[in-house]
Design a binder for these strands. Structure first.
Lengths: 334, 334
DNA sequence: ATGAAAGCGCTAACAC
DNA sequence: GTGTTAGCGCTTTCAT
């Protein structure tokens, strides 16, 4: 059981005061005009004995933890996983650390997680908001805690957010289907009023309207079992004799693929929102509406860091363009 | 800017001392024989004003953070992601929280993360050790910090671990290939001395020896680019005219599938270690050696909780059986 | 049964 | 330039 070395131990050993050591350790040696020789002596000693400050005590004193709470829908979804990874590395360079948790889009769990992170005094939040947490977020903002939302936003809460242009993404996909000559084009989405879902729906509608086509829309319950969803999708495609389907999320599309496999029917042309390994490997490879993950992560961090430094002048609403990555699944075979 | 309410505010408002409030809040009312009426009065008031203790101060005082550090190879790999999720929920019920980070099997990063978590005073660690961190782990153990390793272990460090029976898993897969009548069965693994890789290799060897078959082994560099690996695998399969391949990890198998797609050659029969959505959806569906994820998570937590409570009597080495989930990719077509 | 006060390890205002 | 010390919010010993 190695005993942890304290700042007072260092002060004692070197015959100086804790203040001096503290100043030196916090890069205030210059500012406080502490002699270079002493500075060096302290730093050398610190390195030699491997002193590590107690971050808890530091945080308690300064009120800053240098930790950012990342609250996302589902860490095992590669879309979120990748953004989390990017955020983690970028923020690391700035001396911040990330703690993250998945909400599974459950608003109770989200509220609880926000509360828990707040208890742990995180310096700021990055959140994919689930529905019904407007008040929780407002409280955060009132307490002056920096918050950046992403992937979706809360129309009734005035806060910064970074999202993809979901409307345009869905619109482009729908137009692409139409241009390929598909006749009966459906959309699979969720029973959810979240903005990203609403915008994707709107984009699809607009695209269909433009070609004066009838829309076919299937919404899945957020809490439906996968087995149910698989059967529902089969029915949706077959009953409506669809020749093309746009899926509003990557996991819906995966469910669609499973449905094809289970019920052994010929899948229509497909486009999915958000890329996934499965889509690249699938035979045929699946066309996707891909969000600019790296840019999203960059913007989230930039905004948050500004807020953490108190330098944010105004509230930022960023909408970044999506890219339609055309692969085999949406090309009409003659 | 809502002001945070403190324990002293409560004491003042109710005309009692902070000690009393603290006792009540920490479920010591009975023990300290505080009157039921007062207890109730305090609890009601606490609820009314929504008091939340400052966890930092608490931790500083008690030396316990109720946080467990989970350090795993790659959070975006569903095998690890799922275990993380299970551990998170199970530990949550016990009042512990998890903070996690990915090492990407980089030993420097692992060491740094362990150090960082230690600075933040996590109460215990759950780690998939990368190579070369024996000393770091030993230091942890010397400082009496509870540590449980999983997925692999460090032969030179005497600590608890929970792993799958990798030898048996690989052996069963190899036997299955042989029984199906495959002639030229290869193994794709990594240049890594980690125990799980070594055991899978041994299991394959043993299985091949039993049938007196020649082994074909391809090892990929840990840091090889995916593009290189794709080409290497193509070469390996084609040059050796393999009709069956066992992949030592799920991502190696995915690379194998990509290789088939890129080079457009007929894939041999396949078995992968650790399941993945891709494998279920693939045409043909891919046979896997599946680890008992839930049991692994359970055992990790049980051991860790015992250690956290100081009740661990002895060091536990647990090896749980793998299951061969036979799907289409390993069935010999006549 | 309840309260006063020390102290966890650190930072920083203030004193010299 | 450097040291003394209060205090961040909490738990817990000791006293009453």
């Amino acid at each position: 059981m190695k005993k942890r070395i304290l700042i007072s131990d260092i002060a004692k050993a070197l015959g100086v005061s804790v203040t001096t050591v503290s100043f030196i350790l916090n890069d205030k040696a210059k500012e406080k005009r502490i002699s270079e020789s002493l500075t060096k002596r302290v730093l050398d000693y610190v390195k030699k004995v491997g002193y590590k400050p107690n971050e808890l005590a530091k945080s308690l004193r300064t009120g800053k933890t240098k930790i950012i709470g990342l609250i996302i829908e589902d860490i095992s979804n590669p879309f979120f996983g990748n953004i989390a990874r990017l955020i983690e590395t970028k923020v690391y360079e700035q001396g911040y650390r990330i703690i993250y948790c998945s909400t599974n889009n459950d608003s109770e769990k989200t509220k609880e997680l926000i509360g828990m992170f707040n208890d742990r005094q995180v310096d700021g939040f990055i959140i994919t908001p689930s529905e019904g947490i407007e008040e929780t977020i407002s409280n955060l903002l009132q307490s002056n805690v920096p918050v950046v939302l992403f992937d979706r936003y809360l129309p009734d809460v005035e806060t910064d957010y970074v999202i993809a242009d979901n409307f345009q993404g869905a619109f482009d996909a729908t137009v692409h289907f139409n241009e390929q000559g598909y006749k009966r084009i459906g959309l699979v989405s969720l029973y959810s009023d979240q903005t990203q879902m609403r915008d994707r729906l709107d984009g699809y509608m607009k695209g269909m309207d433009q070609f004066k086509k009838q829309v076919y829309i299937k919404k899945i319950q957020l809490d439906a079992s996968e087995a149910e969803a698989i059967d529902d999708l089969h029915e949706f495609v077959v009953d409506n004799r669809l020749d093309a389907v746009l899926f509003a999320t990557n996991y819906l599309a995966i469910t669609g693929l499973k449905s094809g496999k289970k019920h052994n029917y010929k899948l229509p042309a497909l486009i999915a929102f958000d890329d996934h390994t499965v889509f690249k490997l699938h035979e045929p490879a699946i066309t996707v509406v891909s969000q600019p993950i790296e840019e999203i992560a960059d913007h989230i961090i930039n905004i948050l860091l500004l807020k953490l430094q108190g330098k944010a002048k105004s509230i930022k609403h960023l909408t970044l363009p999506c890219e339609l990555k055309i692969r085999e699944s949406s090309i009409l075979k003659q």
